[in-house]
Design a protein around this nucleic acid. Sequence first.
DNA 1: TGGCTCTTTCAATGTTTCCTGAAAGAACCA
DNA 2: TGGTTCTTTCAGGAAACATTGAAAGAGCCA
Lengths: 202, 202
Amino acid sequence: MFPERTIDSRPEWPDTSLMAPSSPQSQARPLPDALREAQDRYIATWSQMGSAWGISRTMAEVHALLYITGDALCTDEVMDRLEISRGSASMSLRALLEWGVITRTHKRGDRKEYFLAEQDVWAMFRAIVRERMKREVDPMLASLFEIRDMTGGMGTIAKDHNDRLDQLLLFFEVMQMFGQRFISPTGEGLQAAADILSKSDA
Amino acid sequence: MFPERTIDSRPEWPDTSLMAPSSPQSQARPLPDALREAQDRYIATWSQMGSAWGISRTMAEVHALLYITGDALCTDEVMDRLEISRGSASMSLRALLEWGVITRTHKRGDRKEYFLAEQDVWAMFRAIVRERMKREVDPMLASLFEIRDMTGGMGTIAKDHNDRLDQLLLFFEVMQMFGQRFISPTGEGLQAAADILSKSDA
DNA sequence: TGGCTCTTTCAATGTTTCCTGAAAGAACCA
DNA sequence: TGGTTCTTTCAGGAAACATTGAAAGAGCCA
C-alpha cells in the first residue's frame, strides 16, 4: 500500500551497549546505534506520511530529521545524514521555513545557518493547518463561490446543481471555522486539554 | 501555486438563453452551456484540491463529475465527458467505490453499470476520513509505537528522543479520537448542528 | 576590492506516478 | 455453447514530479 522506500530499516537490533564511532555528528557527539536506527525509522515513517498527504518525500525527511534529533543542523549535516544533494537540501529547508515548521539559527563564530524544528507538536500542526488553509481551502472556497455565481440566475434548471454547490460551500465554511479555531489562541486550549488528559491517565 | 490544469475555463459566458445541442448526454437531455461550464470549473477545482491532498487528478475529476451532475453515469459517459481512456475510467471508478464515495446502480433493461456519487456531503467526508484514518493514520501510529519501543529501555541518553515521540503519539491519539467522533453516528450530530446554523443565518 | 564561505538557482536528468489501449475476463442471453 | 456486451487488467508509453550539481549570487572580512 505504501511506496517502497526505507532508510535501512533492519528488523533486528545491533549491539547497542557501546557508542559507535558514527559519522561526524552535529557537535562531535556520536550516537548509539539504536537511537540512530530509531531516528531512521522515524524519518522513513514521516516521509511515507508526507507523501500520502502531498508533501515531497525529501522535504518530509528533512523535517523528520530536524524534529527527531531536536538539534540545530546545518545544510551539510542534513545532506550527509540523508544522503541528498546540496540543492535538494537547500530547497527543502527553505520550503520548511515557509511552512513555518522550522526556524533559522546561528552559532557564534560560525557563518553557517543552522535549522531547528519547532519542538512543540501542537504549534507545528497549527502552522501546517494555517498554511494548508491559506494555500488550498481558501482558494477553493473562492472558486466555489465563483462557480456558484455562474449559475445563480438560471432558475429551476440549475436548482439541483446549485444545491449541491451550496452543500459543499456550507461544509467547507464549517471546516474553515474549525480550522481557524484550531490555529487561533483558542486552539491552544485544545492543546492544554490534551495535555491534562495525558497526565491524568498516564 | 496550483499546477496549471483547467478544463476550458473561459472567463466569459456564452449565450445561455438556449439549450445547446451538446454531445449525447446521459438521458438525451442537453445541458445549457452555462451549466456545463460551471460543471467543468467545478471538476477542475476539485481535481486541483485532490492533487494537493494526494488524490490523483483523474480520480478526483471522476468523482467531481458524478457529484456535480448528481446523475448515475456509466463508464462510457464518464470517458466521453472527461476525455479519458476506458482503463482510466474503470480504475478510477473502482477506487472511488473502495473509498465508499460512489455506489453502483443498474438500469432496468440495461446491462451496463451506472455510478452514483454519495450526495450527502457530510456522509462523503465521513467516508473519506474513515478511509484516510485506516490507510494512513492507523499504520503510522503503529509505526510510532514500534519506534518508541526501540529506545524504551535506553535511559537518559534517549530521554529527549522519547519525549518527542511521546508528544507526537499523544497528538495523533487525540486526532484519532476526533476522527472517530467525526465518523461515528455522533459525527452526524455535528452535521445537524451545521445544518441548523446554516438555516439560522441564511 | 578580491578572496573566502555559504546559499540559492535552474537546466538537465532521473524517478515515480499516471494513463492508455489492447487483450483477457466475466456475465449474460439465446 | 457461442456470441454479445460490458468490465478489468496490465505492459508500455507519457507526463508530472523531484533531484542533482555546477554556476551564479550574497554576505563577510581584511
